[in-house]
């Protein structure tokens, strides 16, 4: 570096240059008395500027916040923003999971109970339009497949049942943990204010 630091002086002092440039300047400054003096003066200036008196407050934080809140006009939230839809979807997750678990368990237990009662299965199947009489009542997947005409579900057995319930339960617990973390974070911020 043949020239003095010049306009890079501030960026150098504020550590806003790339490491390569910083090193090049350091090498130059080591042998340049002019730049050493410039840097020294600049450092003094920064210290002087930072030695500012504290801001004299007119109102306390709480008073100020109360003044602001008294002037707030209700602002209608934007309907159907991308973020709003995502938020709604996120809040719907536990409801959907609970509904699924309840549905699976109800069908399973009710179906099995109806199978015990002689003629119970035929009676129940006959009362639900759209369901063929030959399906297994204790199989929730078969019921969904036939009710909604979705034919790409795997076969339902006890293992599928356990895995599905496990996945749903884990997802639900994970959601609860994330939600709890968010609540804690909000509360901590409120406590800190």
């Amino acid at each position: 570096m043949s020239d003095h630091i010049g306009s890079l002086l501030d960026a150098y002092l504020d550590h806003e240059l790339s490491p390569v440039r910083m090193r090049a300047i350091e090498d130059h400054v080591a042998d340049c008395e002019f730049c050493q003096k410039e840097i020294e003066q600049r450092r003094k200036l920064i210290v002087l500027l930072k030695d500012a008196p504290p801001v004299p407050a007119v109102h306390s934080k709480d008073q100020f916040a109360a003044i602001i809140q008294s002037q707030l006009m209700p602002r209608p939230a934007k309907p159907w923003t991308y973020q709003g839809v995502l938020r709604l979807g996120w809040q719907a997750v536990p409801v959907a999971l609970l509904f699924t678990i309840i549905f699976i368990q109800t069908v399973f237990w009710l179906g099995n109970a109806m199978l015990i009662i002689p003629g119970g299965s035929d009676m129940l199947l006959g009362s639900i339009p759209g369901l063929p009489i030959e399906i297994n009542l204790s199989d929730p997947i078969q019921i969904v497949v036939n009710l909604f005409r979705i034919y790409y579900f795997p076969a339902w057995d006890w293992l599928t049942g356990i895995i599905a319930t496990l996945i749903i339960s884990i997802t639900y617990i994970a959601w609860m943990i994330i939600w709890w973390g968010q609540q804690q974070s909000t509360n901590n911020h409120r406590m800190a204010l």
């Binding site: 809140q69 707030l72 911020h189 409120r190």
Partner: peptide, 13 residues
Amino acid sequence: QGDQEAFGDLVRY
């Protein structure tokens, strides 16, 4: 979303 209490917290912060 329009929560004035939350905004009050932001103001304090």
